[in-house]
Design a protein around this nucleic acid. Structure first.
Ligand SMILES: [Zn+2]
Ligand SMILES: [Zn+2]
Ligand SMILES: [Zn+2]
Ligand SMILES: [Zn+2]
Lengths: 155, 155
DNA sequence: CTTAAATTTGTTACATTATAACAAATGGAA
DNA sequence: TTCCATTTGTTATAATGTAACAAATTTAAG
């Protein structure tokens, strides 16, 4: 629950990259900054629009390259169910087999880095001969906030 | 493990639709048939190509409408991680909170309808105030066959 | 410092995935 | 039959993502 300021988060990300022998360039930092400050998940072309405010020359490859890099080094996650991206709040924790709770209403994401009950799941599928990769598991549903405001229906 | 023939599977699907007050029209049946006979998951435009062999007028909406219908009635599942679709081998079982084991190498899918350990997961996220929806969970990794043939790397 | 290699970025074009919108056809109920 | 709802045909376009190659920048030698 360490609530770092945005610059502190960016500096921590910077150090994380250096540790791994990678560079957090200006563009990559800007994209990460957008994701961090936005809070909720963002789509690639929404990131592009925002990025173009400060970098008018930015094009789709600009954004996708930065996103690919940030995914590689584990600073962000991709949400397959939304075709969207979200900053990882705890990139320094080793989270093989983490879980992402994706709200279908507000598109907010809650991340669970390493829950004990996940081993039940990985053990069970391993017993079936399946070797899970290291992606995060995505669970779609309604966050607590949206349950209250949304009596009946998800989007 | 009932290995029904394709016509038997299609007839069972037909009855399933009728029970639910829905109609398995020719197009829908053809799309389901392609998915059932293909075995592995298929992409929408691959389904379209195959469908056009017998229905030259088929266009993207033709396929997407059929897929939407089959998803609605639970005869197929969508694989968010692959933008692909797969026939549900056990559509008659109530599988809220099922699991799909998606092989990153061969794109084969193994479905686990209702595993006891899934309740650990749903209970845990419910305790966090999150209400999971009724989609299937997707776990990416390597199936047992591909592990043997693939010493090192997933795709 | 100069040069060469590697990485990153700019730029254009294109590929893939999915949907909007509206007309035509089909199938049942009144 | 006539009306209405559902399904299908058709065209166009939106949304998401990548290929390919040139230019710029950074890094590492020489
Ligand atoms: Zn994370
Ligand atoms: Zn929400
Ligand atoms: Zn199923
Ligand atoms: Zn496989």
């Amino acid at each position: 629950m360490a609530t770092l300021t945005l610059p502190d988060q960016l500096n921590a990300a910077q150090r994380w990259c250096v540790t791994r022998g990678e560079k957090l360039t200006d563009i990559r930092r800007d994209v990460l900054s957008l994701l961090l400050s936005h809070g909720h998940s963002m789509k690639a072309y929404d990131i592009l629009s925002e990025l173009q405010q400060s970098r008018p020359t930015a094009a789709p490859p600009t954004v996708y390259r930065a996103l690919d890099f940030l995914l590689q080094v584990g600073l962000i996650h991709r949400l397959d169910s939304l075709n969207a991206f979200v900053a990882c709040p705890e990139f320094a924790l080793p989270h093989h087999h983490g879980v992402l709770l994706v709200c279908e209403n507000c598109h907010g994401v809650t991340e669970i880095a390493d829950a004990p009950w996940m081993s039940h799941l990985t053990d069970a599928v391993a017993a079936l001969g399946f070797t899970p990769g290291h992606q995060e598991l995505e669970i779609k549903g309604l966050c607590s906030a949206c349950q209250k405001t949304n009596p009946g229906a998800p989007a």
